[in-house]
Design a protein around this nucleic acid. Structure first.
Lengths: 225, 225
DNA sequence: GTACTTCATAACCGCTTTATAACCGCGCCG
DNA sequence: CGGCGCGGTTATAAAGCGGTTATGAAGTAC
């Protein structure tokens, strides 16, 4: 996933880039509007984060330029007190916005939400693989002909990550990034717990998992037959 | 399309009037606030562009006077450095603003956007979906064959937002933007409250909502059958 | 002005979800 | 054997969410 970030404040730019980089995204930087438009054309990012006040072309203009050619999610950054601008930004087709100052955690959460939504819209429908169906409308999963099992936010993301690579083992670190987005390597505890809860929900016999199997050392995998 | 323009600076007034005239709009001029109010009553324009600092009645007063009688789009003009005024103007019901100096191009773009939006809202007519009918004339909602239930401004916007996506869950953040136009940490409370009030009005049994249902985590949805 | 409605802010409750931590069992290897 | 890493399990604390109620401010009607 490649994300374009444009802001004329180099400190903030670095901070955002660092946070996104840690979360596993590729980052393309720009320090003014015109550079942002060029980078957009050159790098073809999957999402864009634009400051509104920038020299060169403003965030509005960049947003317009992007919307003219693409439907990628666009998030606007704005300083507190300039909230009126947001209406305009949303009219121009921006998908979300963030008011400075913001925490990296918040940023990541919103970016993930945006990308996920964009992803879902692209797929336009439930994600199916073998006998497993993931229903993003209801946040639920169907196993074979069984009942829909409602999932929590984290459980759903885990299923999503595993289902995308159905049959293949997915590395634990990768899962941590995909589900939580910001975790270090030491937090395998969370993953253990989440896997446990998920098994309780979707396995006929949680002690002998048929679906969500352990791949020793490397991580977990989803067996969809 | 008739547009009222009020500014005490005759040069700027002429410039704006010329730009709008070139673009095919009819222009009604006023050089002070009291004249603007009179012209509004006499000419019944489709939109108004008001300077904030004017002799006679200020732009605020004119804006109030207009809003008391009409919902036409109002754009405020302000000098750079007086941005704090804008919050008040927007609170008074102004739809947009422009900071001097501005280019005629910008002005026209904004005016067009304003008129377009106003047009859309007007054309809306009664919005119907299943057994729910939203009457924008009376600011009321009909459920099935029941009585009309009068709604407040916020309640109406919430219904509107939900009805537009009837049956589908609408994200809380999105609702906040659609209803209030902004989003903040404490704003979740507002939504909770508004939903509560609305349920009291439209649900047969507010404790077990049939229409305005909760979609855990993701937001709310309107079930219209 | 007063009375009434609407809206914003806050606090509380009950419940679910998530995070933190400890413990268990097993296989591995020195 | 005994420590250690790893996955699984259990327990408990913290955070979040949705619903409700109370209260005061702001606006509107009379």
């Amino acid at each position: 996933m490649k994300i374009l970030v444009a802001d004329d404040d180099p400190d903030l730019l670095d901070l955002v880039a660092y946070a996104l980089g840690q979360a596993g995204y590729l980052v393309v930087k720009a320090t003014n509007g015109t550079a942002a438009i060029q980078q957009f054309a050159a790098a073809a990012p999957d999402a864009a984060i634009l400051d509104i006040n920038m020299p060169g072309a403003s965030g509005f203009e960049v947003c317009s330029a992007i919307r003219g050619r693409s439907t990628i999610p666009v998030m606007m950054l704005t300083a507190r007190g300039e909230e009126q601008d947001l209406v305009r930004a949303l009219d121009l087709g921006a998908d979300d916005y963030l008011t400075k100052p913001f925490s990296p955690r918040t940023l990541l959460a919103r970016v993930r939400a945006l990308l996920r939504r964009a992803q879902l819209e692209r797929n336009a429908g439930p994600l199916v693989s073998g006998r497993v169906t993931l229903d993003s409308e209801a946040n639920a999963v169907h196993i074979g002909a069984g009942q829909a099992v409602p999932l929590t936010k984290l459980e759903f993301r885990l299923m999503q990550a595993l289902l995308a690579q159905a049959g293949r083992a997915v590395n634990s670190d990768r899962l941590l990034i995909l589900v939580w987005g910001h975790r270090g390597a030491g937090d395998r505890q969370l993953l253990k717990q989440l896997v446990h809860r998920l098994r309780q929900k979707i396995e006929a016999n949680p002690a002998v998992p048929q679906l969500l199997q352990t791949a020793p050392v490397s991580g977990y995998k989803l067996v969809v037959e």
